[in-house]
């Protein structure tokens, strides 16, 4: 454990050196949650790559899944007098004190990916994230067209209570309400896990048998697990049972190309351009929209093959 203070010292020294070396470059501090998934890695790479392209001086801090690391990172950003702080909050609560410190120093804070709960909305300048509701709606609309508004659906939910699971579930239910022929006959949580999707789908197949026409999964991992369960039950995923999911990880887009998955809606992690576009107006103290969303696309058999080569995650 002794090496950690030394490392921290080194970290600060290197930051101090770079602070003196910089000319009037725009300085941005980015407090990332960690590196817990391929999505997150793609998100980090987008932020770093786009900063390099635009000549910004990006100070990157990996929170390693802990809020206290992120708070410490924000404090060090304030001490270094960065121009803008970008925060991907790991949890929703407990940010008020450190954000107040940033405001006192006159540094605007952009939230990305996830939002926070606070009584004082003015503590952050704006939020840029993924529109989970829109993703669920896109999936439902695509499905309604594909099956002409007819069919029995089983739903594989994400982790109960998580924002993407809640929103994707609500949006899908709202959208299919317009089609009386589309009905969710069962819904269980696969916890966003591949093994979970497979296990739940196995149980659904035994319980409902051939009644299941459509699977709607809140993420690709569960859809891929479900596809495997369908294969093991002697059916063809994508043909006998239609699979729709969200995230568009590379493996899922490949599965769409192979015909094992019918459609996946993107949850785009490439936030770099969108976030940096807003930084200029922010520094010039121009008004910016409080909430904006990254644009998501939809991949099915018509366009998956064309984009598979450029998928970054």
């Amino acid at each position: 454990m002794k090496s950690i203070p030394c490392l921290r010292l080194l970290f600060f020294l290197s930051l101090a050196v770079s602070a003196f070396a910089g000319d009037r470059q725009v300085k941005i501090g980015f407090a990332q949650t960690g590196a817990e998934s391929a999505w997150r890695t793609a998100n980090t790479n987008s932020m770093k790559g786009e900063a390099a392209k635009r000549g910004f001086d990006l100070k990157f801090a990996d929170g390693q899944g802990k809020q206290e690391n992120q708070i410490r990172a924000i404090r060090s950003f304030v001490a270094q007098r960065v121009d803008v702080i970008v925060l991907a909050p790991i949890v929703e609560t407990g940010w008020d004190p450190v954000l107040r410190e940033a405001r006192r120093a006159g540094i605007p804070v952009i939230l990305t990916d996830r939002t926070i709960q606070t009584a004082d909305e003015s503590l952050y300048a704006c939020f840029i994230g993924s529109d989970f509701y829109e993703e669920g709606r896109m999936a439902a609309d695509w499905l309604a067209r594909k099956v002409n508004g007819q069919g029995a659906i089983v739903e594989l939910q994400g982790t109960p209570g998580s924002a993407p699971a809640n929103e994707r579930r609500r949006a899908f239910a709202d959208a299919i309400a317009k089609h009386p022929g589309l009905k969710i006959i069962d819904s269980q949580s696969g916890d966003f896990r591949r093994a979970g999707g497979k296990e739940v789908m196995e149980a659904f197949l035994k319980k409902h048998g051939r009644a299941i026409r459509i699977v709607y999964a809140h993420n690709d991992d569960m859809a891929l697990g479900a596809a495997q369960a369908i294969e093991e039950a002697g059916l063809k995923p994508g043909t006998d049972i239609i699979l729709v999911s969200i995230d568009a990880i590379r493996e899922a887009v490949q599965a769409v190309v192979d015909g094992r998955l019918n459609c996946t809606v993107e949850c785009n992690p490439l936030f770099g351009p969108k976030v940096y576009d807003i930084i200029g107006p922010l520094i010039r103290k121009e008004p910016v929209p409080k909430k904006s969303y990254n644009k998501d696309e939809l991949f099915d058999a018509t366009n998956a093959a064309a984009v598979i080569a450029q998928r970054e995650y």
């Binding site: 591949r194 093994a195 497979k198 991992d221 495997q228």
Partner: peptide, 12 residues
Amino acid sequence: NIRAADAYRAGE
């Protein structure tokens, strides 16, 4: 079982 190694979630 899932033809994949998911270091983040396996065995959770």
